[in-house]
Simulated scan of single mutants.
Amino acid sequence: MEKDRAEFWAACERVLDTMSGPVADDAAARRHILAEAELILSDMVESLRAGHARVTENNRRAAGGNGGSAAARDAHPRDSLLFWDAFFDIVLRRLVAYVDLGEESRDPFGLAVSVLYRSITSRLSDGLVSYSGRLLNKVHEAQLDERSRITRELHDRVGFWLNTAFRQMELYDVARERGTDLGKATERVERARFAVREAMRSLRATTSELRLQEPVKNLEKALSAAFAALPANEAVFRLNVNGDEEWAPNAVKDEVFLITREAVRNAVVHGRPKLVVIGVHIAPHELRVYVDDDGAGFDPAEKSGGIGLSAMRERAELLNGALTVSTVQGRGTHVELFVPIPERGDA
């Protein structure tokens, strides 16, 4: 067998040439599996010389992986199985050609076949365990990503309206206790009722599809309606939208709406500003949002950010965009969002 190794490896190369997939196509993975085949052949020769099975573990062969690129390591075990099946056939045929299957040759032949079988099945078993482990890791990562997404959806779509309703009712209680401006107090109740209805609608949509059934189509109208529902106290909102909204896909406008709405809500609830200026600038290839307030600001070193700020950043990243927040205590907060707009063919 050692004498005809060149012909033997040429046969193995031909097997790989007829295959498709990461094991055959990835150069490093190809070298790896041929090196494993070389080890098996060496084990057979050493076992025949020693008269008993000698199977090299090779330090567990890097957990039985396919070697090479990440794509090759993630290849389904059936890709390796195709090669090992052909390899087994090649070796078996050559054993039959080399060995006279008489009485004296039965034991060495059986030993060679046993080593061949154990070596191949060991590698397939290791590969299957490694592949299963990688699949479980991917499932776990997907579960974590989905939990984060659900958290964002509940916070931004349902939590916003519930928080708005609660704040309106708080202000209603204050007005009622003071007995002043009951007309405005009644208006707060109506706004709270509207916010609760929106929360219920958003919750139904979120639990059924984990997304709004109808994404935002008109960003300016959606933002104006959201700001009108906020318990702004004495704050004044100035919204300016420039550019053609048709340049931005509805899915992008939907995410930008949620980020901007949360930025304004944070300004109103935590900063208690007198003025909040919101600028939305839409160009054919990018969308930028600026939210400036003259409120209390905060100390970035002490502010944890909470779910709201984290959700804003995550949504920006999902759009391949960026969110920056700068603030000075007593001098307000500046929030800036940048989102690239894909070309129509890429949307």
Rank of each mutant, 00 (worst) to 15 (best):
E170C: 03
Y117Q: 08
S125G: 12
N163D: 15
Y131C: 06
D156G: 12
E146C: 04
F166W: 13
S148W: 08
L162M: 13
I120R: 04
K138F: 02
L154H: 08
H155G: 02
S148I: 08
G133D: 12
G133H: 05
H140N: 07
V139S: 10
D126E: 11
E153P: 00
Q143D: 13
L124S: 07
G133Y: 08
A165C: 08
L128Y: 07
R157E: 09
L136W: 01
Q143T: 03
V115R: 02
V113N: 00
Q168L: 08
G133L: 04
N163W: 00
R134T: 04
Y117M: 07
L135I: 07
T151F: 03
Y117F: 11
N163P: 00
A142T: 12
A142H: 06
H140C: 00
Y117W: 02
R152E: 13
V115H: 07
Y117H: 15
V115K: 01
R147W: 05
F160I: 05
L162T: 14
G127I: 03
L154G: 02
S114G: 03
Q168I: 01
I120L: 07
A142Q: 12
L144A: 09
L171F: 06
Y117E: 09
D145E: 14
D173T: 14
V113S: 00
N137F: 09
L171D: 08
D126T: 06
H140M: 11
D145K: 13
S148N: 13
L171R: 10
S132F: 05
Y131W: 15
T121F: 10
E170A: 05
Y117D: 11
R152G: 10
S132V: 13
T151V: 12
M169Y: 06
R123H: 13
V113G: 00
F166Y: 15
V129I: 15
D126S: 10
D126H: 05
V158Y: 08
R147T: 10
V139L: 11
R152S: 15
E170N: 08
V113E: 00
L116S: 01
D156F: 14
Y172I: 02
T121Q: 08
S125I: 01
L154T: 05
L128Q: 08
L111V: 01
K138T: 12
L124G: 14
L136I: 10
S119Y: 08
R123A: 03
V115G: 04
Q168T: 01
V139G: 06
A112R: 02
F166R: 15
A165P: 03
R149M: 11
L162Y: 03
L136G: 05
L171M: 07
Y131D: 02
W161C: 13
T151C: 11
L136F: 02
R157P: 00
S122A: 12
M169G: 01
R149E: 11
